[in-house]
Amino acid sequence: MDTITLRPFRPEDAPWLVERHGTLYAQDEGFDDSFAPLVARIVDDFIANHDPDRDQGWVAEADGRRLGSIFCVGLDETTAKLRLFLLVPEARGRGLGRRLIDTCMGFARDKGYLEMQLWTHESHRAACALYAATGWQLVDSKPVHSFGVDLVEQSWKITL
């Protein structure tokens, strides 16, 4: 893989982002077809309502191929939410996840957010390990049945 660049999310990335989330989560986690529509709603909301001065999405690319994504979306004046963090399998284990998280958190700091939150599932072990390694704290964990499977839903936060 040649040089990986991070560029701002563009609306034409939306179909890829929705498809990759739906396909990879079905393959890796057994999620049903209710997950991709949730991702589509999140992406559509971002496109329609984001504040470019306070919200940003990034897409990682190499040789014109999309490899991952991450978003920073304001919840209120002091809190941002990390969303839509994804790496395709061939991009994992190369430090790109850390780079995406660092970029997202740096943006949040630069925009004056004091803390960040995220929602995930315990089964995303590599992502959860990365959150912990970058200073995030697990603040809530509960069993749920979502997307056709039994999961442990987690909430994390970090003070910036």
Rank of each mutant, 00 (worst) to 15 (best):
P52C: 12
Q117M: 08
K81I: 03
V139Y: 06
W156Q: 04
P11S: 08
P8C: 10
R41L: 01
L86P: 07
V73G: 00
V43G: 01
R94P: 00
H124N: 03
Y113P: 04
G22C: 07
P143D: 11
R109N: 00
D63L: 06
S146P: 04
Q27V: 15
T159D: 03
P15Y: 07
E29I: 14
E77C: 07
T159P: 02
P89C: 09
E61C: 11
V39S: 01
T78S: 08
L6P: 02
A133Q: 10
T79D: 02
C72A: 13
W156F: 11
L96S: 00
P143C: 08
A36W: 12
K157A: 11
R98E: 13
I70G: 02
F9A: 01
F31H: 06
Q27G: 08
G93Q: 05
P11G: 06
V149L: 12
N49W: 07
D33L: 06
C72W: 03
D102G: 05
A108M: 15
F46V: 06
A36R: 05
D32N: 15
P143K: 12
H21N: 15
L84N: 06
A48I: 09
F35P: 00
G135W: 03
P8T: 12
H21L: 11
L82M: 13
I70T: 01
Q154Y: 10
L118M: 04
L138E: 13
P15E: 02
